[in-house]
Design a protein around this nucleic acid. Sequence first.
DNA 1: CAATCTTGCGTTAACGTTATCTATTATTTG
DNA 2: CAAATAATAGATAACGTTAACGCAAGATTG
Lengths: 335, 335
Amino acid sequence: MKKRPTIADVARAAGVSMMTVSRVMNDKPGVGEEMRQQIRELANTMGYRPSQIARGLVTRQTSSIGLIVPDIANPFFAQIARGAEDAAFEHDYNLFLINTAENLDREMAALASLLQKEIDGVILCSSRLPPDELETHIQDFPAVVLFNRELGAPMPHVATLNVNDRLGGQRAVQHFVAHDRRRIAIIAGPVTSISGQRRLDGYRAGLQEAGIIFDPGRLEHCEPTTEGGRAAATAILTRRPRVDAIFAFNDLVAVGALQACEDAGKKVPDDVAVIGADDIPIATMLRPRLTTLHIDLPAIGAQAMTLVLGMIQDQTNGDGAAYEIEPELVIRESA
Amino acid sequence: MKKRPTIADVARAAGVSMMTVSRVMNDKPGVGEEMRQQIRELANTMGYRPSQIARGLVTRQTSSIGLIVPDIANPFFAQIARGAEDAAFEHDYNLFLINTAENLDREMAALASLLQKEIDGVILCSSRLPPDELETHIQDFPAVVLFNRELGAPMPHVATLNVNDRLGGQRAVQHFVAHDRRRIAIIAGPVTSISGQRRLDGYRAGLQEAGIIFDPGRLEHCEPTTEGGRAAATAILTRRPRVDAIFAFNDLVAVGALQACEDAGKKVPDDVAVIGADDIPIATMLRPRLTTLHIDLPAIGAQAMTLVLGMIQDQTNGDGAAYEIEPELVIRESA
DNA sequence: CAATCTTGCGTTAACGTTATCTATTATTTG
DNA sequence: CAAATAATAGATAACGTTAACGCAAGATTG
């Protein structure tokens, strides 16, 4: 509302040059302790706050990081966002949040608008962009962390952080097999999802390990939502009524599968065992409690943020590295 | 990585002044159609993107809106954030997301850092700041929407958007009473929560209406989480074992209450009926499905964003107004 | 056909901050 | 005690963009 004081106003009021005020505000040397205190106090009473915009123009730093996710309403990404924002707050950074809604154009628009904002770094989650598009769009950022997405060849200023979904899928199948389930179905999520492809990979590896031949009739793709999971599970259950286990793309999809089993009159886990993935909070709220592949979502968000921040500060920190997170099967009631 | 071209580079390459390029980039008149096309193309091939920072310094507009929420990992706020971001995207605005973690200092720090970023507007959700602090902290923003928080006196550039939680609480109690429940407990959420206070108000009004006297033993406060709800419900159930209905602060708390009933060997809804609030997606995933007070969360987020954007464009649009949303009881299985 | 308006483009000066360099003192040193 | 060094502070010029005004040449008017 009322006009904010500028550094010039403070300087004039204190009878010093703007540089002196600037040095005080940035805790830089070159100002006597006495005057420093005096200016600090004056700035405070005047309500002076340096403009990040003007500062950004000259320093080329904005103290802002972009976080691009498919859908913040998905608890998976909401938890990651929480961890990332907490870490950003610790370091006096702010977070731009953008949803892509699983839409390529919107993902590209997101990257473009963040570029114009001259943010210091980006965390890009589950990008669906084709490799070449991805590379051209991220190369102009000072620091990038790709979550659940790999790169053909390492790029400078780009680190990757991936959940070992293949291992997860394999472990899920192993658990089913160990409990004498052999007619195992999989709901693999969106066809374009990298995580989905990896989980499917692990699923097939697990089957092969157990000497079970892959049956395409037990595979279904779907949207990463409860409704998607329900529809997919219903489709599988009608096509292959004797299925005795379902590995779901994620917990949301698993909830849908649970509902489909209920609809079909199948008891979980007696008739059909269900394993989800990601261990979002809902997993323990349901009855039966969901057996799922656990990963520490807020910690992942925090790690991603730490990685970007590290790359900004210090070129070598995490630059080009590929990090991996190992999911752990937590056995509850659904399998 | 590589240095971005500036408007000066484009101007030089095109053999025109910077202003001409500027006019083209902003679709402003004063440039011939032929040259306009030519510059557009050149800018494109050079990969020129105007710096929002430099632009912001002179126009005093950043195309950024701040969204402050207690916790983005809470589906309630995640849904609102989704709606708000979608609406922002539509208008080429970006969203700063900040969590307060129910922490006053952090809320104030959030406001302060957004002020330095010179954002065009803020949506502040469920502020816990005392009235005077709140007023001083929001008055410097060009446009503010307060969600679930009221103002003593209307302020210019500040609109409020409130869920009529009092009515919601009253309706919940009415529903209980209509089904012959009279020993109705309430879990009222954090003591500092405005929504919690309003729901408690409505609860008492509902009781009075039915001629039931208020029993403090049936009231408990708690953190707005599943664990909080579980603990609070357990406390009430041990203190007042004959309670036959629970109105929960929100759906998350209701889930906790459900769990506490399960722990205590009470059947829902037969022994104890439970009503939640907000109708987050989890409500329909649970068994029994949660009866709750429905509001359209993404729509609220979008409305809040539209309100801020309107105030920025046009001073009078929504300025100082107070909007209200009426929750609707959706009856499912838990009550 | 002179007077006015329009169209198309350029010049200059900001916006608020910090980098860099320079100038003035104090303080230490050999 | 002269000379070197450090500490403190100021002046100036960016950073990339747009607002505001200026000016010419062509179009329109009475």
